[in-house]
Structure formats: structure tokens, C-alpha cells
Write a protein that binds this DNA or RNA. Structure first.
Lengths: 121, 121
DNA sequence: AAGATAATTGAACAATTGTTCATATAAATG
DNA sequence: CATTTATATGAACAATTGTTCAATTATCTT
């Protein structure tokens, strides 16, 4: 049972002004889900290796990514689909070979900021 | 059975130069794990809400975060532990109340870059 | 057309995750 | 000291995840 006051905030908060202020700036549920999904796309070691590789070389095919990282084509292909779904990478098919690259400069910036954080520890 | 040439690269790659070049710039396994963990810390909607809240108000206690987000203290406390373990937040205990804040300016930058990415779609 | 190659896909599996519930600790108050 | 309040924690649970394996699609070569 949660009691609420006239502003529809729970009575039982410690610093009412802060709570009210932050609540007013709150984004939608959908927004936070999408934001979390974006970070989640970068939250697996195999995927960080793929993104890192594509930061070094603009375009790489599936097999070369697998060779660089040292795992199977299948594992890489599955992960590339995840990255594709989240619009972190795009691809360009030439004959049998599919070349992948980072989708836009924002991805570079976001990833670079993560790199900086880890490197400057 | 993977055959290798004298440079210890798999023979079967499409663009040998690129593969060699990226391999030379490769970071350690540990590095990619830690990088992935950092992004993973931001990869859950509850945690993005917590971080967003702490971007708006420098310091918030557990109960107020729970009130803002609309979930239980316990759920928030568990998630704060995750964020603490990944050094994304720090805390300051005053009597019964624990105030949480973002650990350093890097976290702000990284999170802000994610926000920008999502907002500019 | 047949075979080889590059990539994708689906099913299955163990492993990990986030929440809830109950309980525990720790500090303030009566 | 007993109670209340604020937070933390452990166990348990369903849900999700990442890889492997086998099979499939699509394209090139002969």
C-alpha cells in the first residue's frame, strides 16, 4: 500500500524537492529501454572486439573478423546480426562477400568514450 | 584443423593486409572484457534510469531513487551494487541514509554520448 | 549443372541476469 | 533497551544470452 500526496508523489521520500525535480525531467520508458539496448549492444567481449576492429579498418568481411578475433564465422555472424539490429553496423554485399562497417560517426564517438574510460583507469 | 602460415595467421582470410594490421593493434582479452563490462553496467533500463537521475541531481539516496523510478528499494539497492562494483557510482553514508553519486566525469561523458546517440535518431 | 565458398539461420544448451521475497545489518529515536 | 527506519543481502525464480552444431541460402567457378 503506497500512500500518495496531492502531487501524486509518494509521501515517504527523503528530499522531496530533488525527487520532484528529477521526476519532471524523466524520459519515457521506451527511451530508457532503447538507451539500455544501445549500451547492451556493446556489452559483450566478442562484440567489443568486432567494433574495435571496425574502428581500425573501415570495412571488414565476416571471415576476416572471425580470423582477427579467433572464433567461428557462425558466432561472428550471430553477433553481427545483433549489431545490425541495433543499427551499430551496416553492410555492403559484394558477390559472396559481405563487408561490414560502423553505421555512423556517433558509434565511433560512443565507443571511443568507452575506450577512454577504460584506458584512463 | 586450422592451418597457419609462417606469420601464424590463418591462411584463409580474404584481405590479408587488413587482418594483419588489425591483429597488430589488438588489445588483450582482459581489456575487452573490462570494456564490455563497463557498457554492460549501462545496459539495463533500471540502471540507465538511475544514472540519468544522478545526472540531474548530483546526490540521491536509495529511497528517493526508488521513488523517482517507481520500484522497490531492494531492486534499486541490488542495481546500485552492480554500478558500485563497476565503479560507475560512489556513495557517502550519512547516518542511516546512503547518498549515491556518479563516480567521475568520465561516466557523465560516456552516458551523455549514449543519450546523444539515442536522441539524434 | 555440379561443386565450392561466404555467410546466415534455427535449435539447443549452459550460463548469466534482474527481480521478488524474506531476512539481516546498522543507525536513529522514543 | 525496543522500535523504527534506511539500506543491504542471500536464495530462488523465470527470462535472456552467447556459443556450437547442423543445415540452408546465395554466389561464384568450372
Amino acid at each position: 500500500m503506497i500512500k500518495r500526496n496531492s502531487d501524486n508523489f509518494e509521501i515517504s521520500c527523503v528530499e522531496k524537492d530533488k525527487v520532484k525535480s528529477v521526476k519532471n525531467k524523466m524520459k519515457t520508458e521506451k527511451f530508457f529501454h532503447y538507451l539500455a539496448e544501445t549500451f547492451k549492444a556493446m556489452s559483450d567481449p566478442t562484440r567489443t572486439k568486432i567494433i574495435y576492429s571496425l574502428c581500425q579498418e573501415k570495412e571488414l568481411c565476416v571471415r576476416d573478423i572471425a580470423t582477427i578475433i579467433g572464433t567461428t564465422n557462425s558466432a561472428i555472424s550471430h553477433q553481427l546480426r545483433t549489431l545490425r539490429n541495433m543499427k551499430l553496423v551496416k553492410y555492403n554485399k559484394v558477390g559472396k562477400v559481405t563487408f561490414y562497417s560502423l553505421d555512423d560517426i556517433h558509434i565511433n564517438n560512443l565507443f571511443a568514450e568507452g575506450l577512454r574510460h577504460v584506458e584512463e583507469e
